[in-house]
Design a binder for these strands. Structure first.
Lengths: 337, 337
DNA sequence: TTGAAAGCGTTACCAC
DNA sequence: GTGGTAACGCTTTCAA
């Protein structure tokens, strides 16, 4: 602790003066692998702590990589997104990266603005969790030597890294889960968001059901949320020929659906109604729900992202698909027999 | 689109050369309020888009403020935390700030490391949502002209801005809610985290109960989570003289507690058991829970943080208390007429 | 081992 | 309105 308390940031210069050495010496003290004699080193360190000096990484980033990784994300409060951000930031930090979060709307325009920010701050890499950026901007990022990683987004986009889960598998499995449980009339609850992942789960579910000759009513009541799931239930059970088995394209939808089915229509799960979700958010395991669903291998996915970010030389334009794993709980009847 | 695709970031220099002007002209084109003639402006803009130029904010931050605001947070996946980060980042972004997230453990040591990072990146301000940083480091931040904002942390810490909710009020109200509902034996479910906010709610609840001559059994089964709430219920209902009214210091605890009370001990809420929570997370409104709780005025709080961050001259060392608002739902019996 | 000097990409200040 | 130059704080040659 010392009296010398400047009202703006301390520079290496000041430390050098106080320690009676050159700025070079100061710099060397703080870059490992540089040669400084023990005495100077000590003098520098002492002056530094007295002054409260901290190396300016912004200035350092002027010459080398910035070590900044940008996470572009919408709907952060959604459990699945919160977990993605959590895991990703943890692992990236462990790899000495700094996390910059851009909380955006998922409209293309907002995502574009986010990417531009990314460029402004010379981020080493950008990870897009929501929305679909315009291809031209991705190219600009790549041209500037920045990595672009798209998670659960559209298809491969020129040179960007791409990872997603096997939505087709989920759609297919969901159908068979319900089919094997003996459900006769099926429902598909989806959102109006219309993202590629959701659409794919939907498409395959419908396709397989059609092939099996099972009729499916489709409902999209709003964005991906508990409220939309609720609303979907109200609409679907207001009709005659209500389904006895439903695939909700997301856990959040499933929980809203299940709750209003039980509390407003007095249906019993899984006796009267079987429900399958997707994401395996924590709430799905809660005793009020015990939702059968699919879990995304978030850890593996995050590991892959880190590898991509760390190794710029890694072959780009690759699409890597991860297998969601079915999580059996109690919202689907065990298959007869 | 152009052939000139460098593999590293484009500088103003390059743009200047291509446009046939000086770098000053380029700089002026991108700082508003600077005077450039329309023709040069156009030439610059054209060259810039062709090259994919983006102003380097890192370099800009060398002279002025960095516009970076750092959020230090633990337990990001927790609904209340996720919402805080979401709201805060939204509002700060709207004020042209860039959000840097440091996902940390809440141990003092990790928080300290986070603050040092904050310094390294010349953040204009640091907002601490979890853990308690050492006072000496806060001083260093302040000395370096950085704002420090502590949310729901300990008391005022030398010069840092401080905001929190009125936990005493919540503890008191929680008691009266249960008391008026006619509960005879009370329970207090808390976490082993032992943060200042939790402790305060706890303390006042016990104090008021003691004054009213009502006995309270206290249980802390683990960290602040659904699982801990569950475990608390198992322990408390394993005993004789189980409570018929419980204050859970957090919604997450409340939901775990409620679920195992109902599903494992066949208790009915609110007939056999009244429950009060705190936070008003989204899940509290779900039909399976309808939890009576207190909501933190997150919007107001975030607005205040933004004001603090934007106006460095604002009187420091102030503690601002926000009033949580009681949210009546169905987990507490209406008080007997 | 050390210090001087150049360079990183900006912007602010000066002359013109 | 425009271009040159200094300065921001750092790291990295290069001599000594």
């Amino acid at each position: 602790m010392d009296a010398a308390k400047p009202k703006s940031f301390v520079s290496a210069q000041m430390v050098a003066e106080r320690a009676g050495v050159s700025r070079s010496a100061v710099s060397r003290t703080f870059t490992d692998g540089a040669s400084v004699s023990e005495p100077t080193r000590r003098k520098v360190l002492e002056a530094a702590t007295a002054l409260g000096y901290h190396v300016n990484h912004l200035a350092r980033g002027l010459r080398e990589r910035s070590n900044i990784v940008c996470l572009v994300v919408a709907d952060m409060t959604t459990p699945i997104r919160a977990r993605m951000v959590d895991i990703l930031s943890r692992k990236l930090q462990a790899a000495d990266k700094i996390i910059m979060v851009i909380n955006t709307e998922s409209q293309t325009e907002s995502v574009a603005a986010a990417l531009r920010q990314t460029l402004n701050y010379r981020a080493d890499a950008t990870v897009v969790l929501s929305g679909t950026p315009p291809a031209s901007l991705i190219e600009t990022c790549l041209a500037n030597g920045q990595q672009v990683v798209l998670i659960n987004r559209d298809d491969r986009l020129s040179g960007s890294h791409n990872l997603g889960v096997d939505n087709a598998m989920a759609g297919r499995e969901a159908f068979f889960l319900l089919h094997r449980a003996g459900c006769k009339r099926l429902g598909l609850v989806t959102s109006t968001a219309g993202t590629a992942s959701l659409l794919e789960r939907e498409r395959v579910f419908l396709e397989v059901a059609a092939k099996a000759g099972v009729e499916v009513s489709v409902i999209a009541a709003g964005p991906t949320s508990y409220a939309s799931g609720s609303e979907a239930a109200r609409r679907i059970f207001g009709r005659s020929r209500a389904p006895d088995g439903v695939f909700c394209v997301t856990d959040l939808l499933a929980m809203g659906f299940m709750d209003t089915a039980r509390f407003e229509f007095d249906l019993h799960v899984p006796e009267d109604l079987c429900i399958v979700g997707f994401d395996d958010i924590e709430e799905a395991a809660w005793q009020s729900y015990r939702l059968t669903t699919f879990s995304q291998p978030l850890d593996e996915m995050a590991d892959h992202v880190v590898a991509l970010v760390l190794d710029p030389g890694m072959a780009g334009a690759e699409r890597r698909i991860f297998e969601p794993v079915p999580v059996w709980r109690k919202s689907v009847r065990p298959s007869a027999g």
